[in-house]
């Protein structure tokens, strides 16, 4: 089943009087539960495409269909609501809230997503997720006391705690060494598969690509043949 469809996406940036077209009519579909890796050289437009697909910036033209909505047509607050409740994000850096404990990071995300779970259900879900990312023992720790790998595991847990429909991951292992990268990607793949979450991931790391079901290479703002 198709979860997200991008149709003829164009993105143009103005740099003074010069217009630069970053995305040149890209169309693609994401299917439920699948991990799609966007790869390509620096400046090929992969991160721009991911942020447009995630509703973080509008396309210059084109359509983004998600659950019968065209994100390009929605108001900013409607897009924000979709981001909070239906999308999950993992970035290159964990970007955890420095004054919240590990457990509170997840509670906070459930609040943001307007989760309808009661207190017990929330507690159980958080416990389960922390066990899955092997961080249950650090539930009361603050980000300052966590290692880079631990932070990223918490970032993954935070991105999934509200059981989003789609996970957007922008270079999720770029700040980690190869051992931690493997751990994080194994974890991310296992979790998305277990929870049936569709994933769109930007990466230029060959090892990370191996965890994707599909790979799409971008070149000069266009999609080249799937690898």
């Amino acid at each position: 089943m198709t979860i997200l469809t991008l149709e003829n996406i164009h993105k143009t940036f103005k740099n003074g009087d010069v217009e630069e077209e970053i995305l040149k009519g890209i169309s693609l579909s994401l299917k439920q539960g699948e991990i799609t890796a966007l790869t390509g050289a620096s400046g090929s437009g992969k991160s721009t495409l991911l942020t447009i697909a995630a509703g973080l910036q509008p396309p210059t033209s084109g359509h983004i269909y998600f659950e019968s909505h065209d994100l390009a047509e929605l108001k900013p607050d409607q897009i924000r609501h979709i981001r909070a409740s239906q999308f999950g994000f993992v970035f290159q850096f964990a970007h955890l809230v420095p004054f919240l404990t590990v457990e509170e990071q997840l509670i906070f995300m459930l609040d943001v997503s307007d989760s309808k779970q009661n207190k017990q259900q929330r507690a159980a879900e958080i416990k389960r997720l922390l066990e899955l990312v092997d961080m249950e023992h650090r539930r009361t720790a603050y980000p300052a006391s966590l290692s880079g790998g631990e932070k990223q595991r918490i970032a993954i847990a935070r991105a999934m705690v509200h059981q989003p429909t789609i996970l957007f991951a922008d270079e999720p292992t770029a700040s980690l060494d190869s051992k931690r990268s493997k751990e994080v990607m194994t974890l991310m793949r296992n979790l998305t598969k277990e929870l049936g979450i569709t994933t769109l991931m930007v990466t230029h790391d060959q090892d990370t690509m191996a965890y994707a079901d599909h790979m799409i290479e971008m070149k000069d703002g266009c999609l080249s043949q799937p690898v």
Binding site: S85, F87, H95, M109, V112
Partner: peptide, 13 residues
């Protein structure tokens, strides 16, 4: 400011 940007990205009003 960076934290606020991230929080806005994940959907915080």
């Amino acid at each position: 400011i960076g934290l606020y940007g991230i929080l806005k990205a994940v959907g915080v009003k």
